[in-house]
Each structure stands twice: as structure tokens, then as C-alpha cells.
Amino acid sequence: MAVSDTQSPARRKNVIAWISLGVSLLALGLKYAAWAYSGSVALKSDALETVINVAAAIGGLWAIHLAERPADDNHTYGHYKAEYLSAIIESAMVLVTALLIARESYDGFMHPQAIHAPWIGITLNGAATVVNLGWGLTLLRIGRRIRSPALVAGGQHVLSDVWTGCGLIAGLALLPFTGWHWLDPAIAALIAVNVLRVGWDMLRQSVSGLMDEAPDSATLTKLHDIIAEKAIGALEAHDIRIREVGAITFIEFHLVVPGTMTVGVVHDICDRIEAGLRQALGRCVINIHVEPEHKAKNMGIVLAHATTAS
């Protein structure tokens, strides 16, 4: 199933979520086979992490479907934050997985066992790692382009699995030559630490989205520049607020205009500003509160070109 740039964002995210589920199931099958053939604690730990990938893909399908539902009487701003909820749930699952892997590592240290058929296990796990690398990069690229927290979180999780797999393969490849049985649980312990780090980072980003954290300075600068460019005839823009919820940007500010300006002219100015913001930032919900000139605060965006307006 191909992912086309001509599809709507909602359709594209739904297609990607279904592909994610298929890729996760394929990787899980390969990693389970790798553990079954070898008996390696590290490979078992890696397979445990992939179980979370499958659960996360199912959760992502639910979140994306819910996030695209239109606003209703109970959710007048829409359901966009459902993707953040999905990302938080996935983050929590990743943290729990880290603890399970740590327990497996501890058991491996206490009861070390020889690995059977290590090269078969390494080969199978390597195939799963290659699959995850391609898909993880795809999820990150598309998720960032269409501003989907669920897809970005999924991509970060999958790529953490890739780096884990690379370290795991390198470590297990040494076992047949060194005979260091402790290396297997040691690798599992490193996997647990990496999974814990990724889960914490995912949780932090998702909570920031739910708390309406302001976007980066580059986005704010772009917003100010667009208002200054399009608000010809107005005097000032202040009390500017912006928040990003998934693929939607919510913007509100006060626009000060001359007291003699007609409603029609003010409406045209607002239309120009809204069109410029949507062209630059994509899907936006914009609320502009118009005020007369005596409400100016001499702060925010002072529009120097206002005196040239007729």
C-alpha cells in the first residue's frame, strides 16, 4: 500500500498507521524467531520491546481516527489532542518495557546460559532491524511534515529499536569468539537503559503538547512577520497567542485599527492576515479581536506602515 503526497492528511495518516501495524508484526515475527532459535536474553528483550511497537501501532490507529473527527457540542475545539494521548500511552508502555527488559537482564546475570545458534539469531534480528530503519525514517519524515504527534512518536520509538538492534548484533557477534556469557545480559541491560531514555523523551514531548507549550522561536518569528506584512492599514497587533495541537495551529491576537476605519476595510485586513497565516502555517484556527486606536499598548507588533494606508 503506497503513501501518496496527494492524499489528504487524514487519509495519509490512516494508511501509515495500518502500514505501521503490518511492519511491527513482521518485525515481531523475525525477532521472536531470533530469540526462539538462540535463547538469547538480549534477543528476548528486543522482542519484548517490539511487542510494544505492535500495541503502539494499534493505539495510533485509534488516535488518528479520533483526532480527525469534527468538533461537536462536547469538544468544540475538535479532537486533535487524541494523538497526544496516544503518544503518552505509548511512552508509558515504553517505560514499562524498559523495566521488564531490566528484569530479564538481571535474571540473565544471575543464571547465565549459553546461546544456541547465535548466527541465525543475529541474521533474523538484523533483517528486522533493516525493516525498522526504513520504516522509522519514513514515519519521522511524514509525521513531521503533516505535524502528527502520534506518527512522530511512533517513528522515534521504531528508530530507538533500530539503534538497540545495531548494538545488540555487534555485541552478540563477539560471543562465539570470546565465550563471555555475561555479555548477553549486559547487552540486555544497555537495551533497557536506551528504551528508558527514549520513553522519557517521548513522554516529555507529549506532555508539552497537552500543556499547550509555545512553538519554537522560528515559528513565532514567522507569525510576527506575516502579521506585519499583511496588516497594512492597521496600527498594532498585541496579546498574540499561539498553540499547536497536532496538525492544527490555534492563533489569536488583538488588532488595533484607526477609529475612522470602516468595518469593510477592517474585514479585508483580517482576511489578508488569515490567508497569509494559512498559506505559511497550514491548517489554522484564527481569532482576531479588533480594537480602536485608543486601545493601543505600544507593544507587540507596532505596524510602521500604518500611516501610509488610506
Rank of each mutant, 00 (worst) to 15 (best):
Asp216Thr: 05
Val51Thr: 07
Asp107Glu: 15
Gln7Leu: 13
Thr123Asp: 01
Gln113Val: 07
Lys81Glu: 11
Glu274Gln: 12
Val158Ser: 03
Leu235Ile: 15
Met261Leu: 12
Leu196Lys: 05
Ser105Lys: 00
Thr129Trp: 01
Ile227Gly: 03
Cys270Met: 05
Trp182His: 14
Gly276Val: 08
Gly165Trp: 02
Gly136Pro: 04
Met110Trp: 03
Ile248Lys: 11
Gly282Gln: 07
Asn53Trp: 01
Lys13Asp: 09
Met211Arg: 00
Asn125Gly: 01
Ile240Lys: 00
Ala2Val: 08
Leu183Pro: 06
Ala304Met: 15
Leu99His: 09
Val193Arg: 00
Thr138Lys: 05
Phe250Ala: 04
Thr6Arg: 12
Glu293Asp: 15
Val266Thr: 14
Ala309Trp: 14
Asp161Trp: 01
Trp119Arg: 02
Ala42Val: 15
Ala63His: 06
Lys222Leu: 14
Pro118His: 06
Ala150Glu: 12
Gly29Met: 10
Ile248Met: 15
Glu293Pro: 09
Gly264Trp: 06
Glu83Asp: 13
Leu139Ser: 03
Ala173Lys: 00
Ala36Gln: 09
Gly300Ile: 06
Glu104Cys: 05
Leu281Phe: 14
Asp225Lys: 10
Gly259Asn: 12
Gly154Asp: 15
Thr50Met: 01
Leu210Ala: 07
Ala296Asp: 15
Asp225Trp: 02
Asn287Trp: 02
Trp135Phe: 13
Pro70Arg: 08
Pro112Thr: 14
Ala188Cys: 10
Gly22Trp: 05
Ala2Tyr: 05
Gln7Cys: 04
His116Ile: 11
Ala57His: 07
Cys270Gly: 13
Ala56Met: 11
Phe177Asn: 08
Thr138Cys: 07
Pro70Leu: 07
Phe177Ala: 10
Thr221His: 11
Glu252Met: 11
Ser208Arg: 10
Thr307Leu: 11
Asp5Glu: 14
Leu30Ala: 02
Pro176Ala: 08
His294Val: 11
Leu183His: 08
Ala304Leu: 15
Pro70Ala: 04
Leu66Gly: 04
Ala82Leu: 07
Arg11Pro: 02
Val130His: 00
Gly300Leu: 06
Leu172Trp: 02
Ile227His: 04
Glu213Arg: 10
Leu26Lys: 00
Val302Leu: 09
Val41His: 00
Ser310Cys: 11
Gly22Pro: 01
Cys166Tyr: 05
Ala280Met: 02
Gly199Val: 12
Gly78Val: 05
Ile191Pro: 00
Leu85Trp: 09
Asp271Met: 09
His79Glu: 12
Ala275Asp: 14
Thr76Val: 14
Leu28Met: 05
Thr307Ser: 14
His305Glu: 14
Ala173Trp: 00
Ile89Asn: 08
Leu203Trp: 06
Ile273Leu: 03
Pro292Lys: 08
Leu140Gly: 03
Glu49Met: 06
Pro118Ala: 09
His238Gln: 10
Lys230Asp: 04
Thr260His: 03
His289Asp: 08
Lys297Ser: 15
Phe250His: 13
Val245Phe: 00
Trp180His: 13
Glu236Val: 10
Asp46Arg: 02
Glu229Met: 12
Arg12Met: 13
Ile16Thr: 08
Leu303Lys: 07
Gly171His: 02
Gly179Met: 09
Trp62Gln: 03
Leu175Asn: 05
